[in-house]
Design a protein around this nucleic acid. Structure first.
Lengths: 198, 198
DNA sequence: CCCTTCACTTGACATTTGTCAATGGCCTAA
DNA sequence: TTAGGCCATTGACAAATGTCAAGTGAAGGG
């Protein structure tokens, strides 16, 4: 299950990972399997690990006082998941993270990553690029959520991340878009009658 | 005007900046003054510079087909401004950035920053920490915009960044919150009648 | 100093989205 | 196989927010 991670690092850093480095990486990450609905993180706990998903799908969400879930992230293979704020600041998380499908993860603590960054240049490069992309992606999403209607946000998500629609039920897609499942259902119905250009 | 920047770097990196480093920094950044309403960046242009604000205030916003402005960022002294996506990817920006008050900026290109990062460790540390904070801040804002009502978002902004309310007109605060000025005006009126606890 | 402009407010009304309740389909576990 | 649960859909209604228009007051430019 480490091959995915190796490939990911080589892609992101545009650098080959040597055998020794690969061994070091394998020693640094802790494999973990989660069954559907099992938690990686629960609200109130500190997020000790970032997780690279080698198989399966995960969601990160908060629960408000009325018991409504608000999904802030949906993740699949070759994505990272974890509450970055809690991980970095060591504060209790306001989020839950659980498996949507049976999943396989590679866990790593911040301490170990900091160490790896120094020992494996490709890792440092990868993380720098990830930070860059993460920031850009969250800027885009923020822009969408401020500027676009629910329908436009739905269409943009379809365009940007079509994979997600195959992997997550509509209820979760709706929550991720910040709307209710009913509203999403109605939007989809409307889009059927005015396909594409109209 | 470089003292602010020096202080910022020392704070963020928890590292003292030597005289030589300070000289290098002064040579690397290009001072620029903008009068109120002058543009730092216009939609369609590539964002060549990140700007450190030493004085004044700036806004970053997009304009939709109906001509409505959507503010994605409001910035004051000791903050950075620029379209990061365009700056990093060298793509045309969808944003405009202009001065809300007369402002003084220090501009730097990506090329020079990459170079500085290698020559001045404090700069590398500062940028790493900025990336971290930026990502955390945009995650928080995203969470707010998905999970909270307009009123709650307003209260949270007041709590997190009270400075902004002294510096920007309500119209801009409203746009930043993703609502119309009329709605913000009504929210404020309501809050007067049920102060704090009720 | 006057005039324009702009920000803020308010009212009436439209639109969007949420809430609640009911239904039917599909999958899964006993 | 069947019962229960989850998901998607739909309808009726409620709440939140947007739109348009008008009016007031304060600030800035000529």
């Amino acid at each position: 299950m480490f091959e995915n991670l190796k490939k990911y690092i080589e892609d992101y850093s545009s650098t080959a990972v040597s055998e020794e480095e690969y061994t070091l990486i394998q020693q640094s990450f802790k494999p973990k399997k989660l069954r559907k609905r099992q938690y990686l993180l629960q609200e109130g706990d500190v997020c000790k690990y970032m997780a690279f998903i080698t198989q399966g799908s995960m969601r990160q969400y908060s629960v408000d006082e009325s018991g409504n879930e608000h999904i802030v992230r949906l993740c699949i293979e070759n994505w990272w998941v974890g509450d970055y704020e809690s991980y970095v600041m060591l504060t209790p998380s306001k989020y839950n993270i659980d498996a949507v499908e049976d999943s396989e993860l590679l866990l790593v603590t911040n301490e170990i990553i900091q160490d790896l960054k120094m020992k494996v240049p490709a890792i440092a490069k990868t993380i720098a690029k990830m930070d860059e992309r993460n920031f850009i992606a969250s800027q885009r999403r923020l822009h969408a959520s401020i500027s676009l209607s629910a329908e436009e946000r739905y269409l943009e998500l379809q365009k940007s991340y079509p994979e997600l629609f195959q992997r997550f039920p509509q209820t979760m897609i709706a929550s991720y878009l910040g709307i209710t499942p009913e509203t999403l259902s109605r939007i989809r119905k409307q889009l059927l009658s005015k396909p594409k250009s109209a």
